[in-house]
Amino acid sequence: MNPRGPLTFALGLASALALGWVAYPRLQYRSVEQPIQFSHKIHTGESVGMTCAECHPLGDDGRFAGLPSIATCEPCHTETQGTTKNEKHFVEQYVTKGREVPWLVYARQPENVYFAHAPHIGLAHLPCERCHGPHGGSDQLRPYQENRLSSYSRDIWGPSATRLARAEWEGMKMTDCSACHEAHGVRESCLTCHK
């Protein structure tokens, strides 16, 4: 039998697999560095010992503050803490000038999604790590990855292209929300999570 036939087939198979598994995932996302390298670890570690809610509080009105404004950083960072270039840049460019840092939010949900932290914290008593993973202990901010087509953050789909064998907190797609809601008997309809 002429081996050329199966070979050509295998070649096609291999190149498509290479494209689909290696090249495409790289093409799919655009990486953007965060404006400042921020270490959660320093802030939550023993020497400073802050909790998540000190910078990301949930207000009495049920509105989650999201990322802290520069006013939250100011009390400690009016003067440079430590000697890193990053810190110097942060103090000079943002704190002193009173400018907000244009952080890129990994967990930002699409415009048509309504997500409130309040029921998840106040009623379901979920720890932050349930959805955000060990982010609070990270020493580096990984690059923000934006989907070139949908412009969604990569964290919505999750780091794994197949969505197989993922950690509990990886992935924030509608199915992920629904699965947990279903497991806990939360009554759902479209407008529960959409706006």
């Binding site: 009495d60 009105d61 309504y114 914290i121």
Partner: peptide, 30 residues
Amino acid sequence: DVSIRMRGVVEKCNFCHGRWQAAKAKAAAN
């Protein structure tokens, strides 16, 4: 609190659902 709709879709009153969600979140926070 309300998303912007695009051309080509239908929309309608939902009794200001964004306000219900805000009220719900306020209750939940407490």
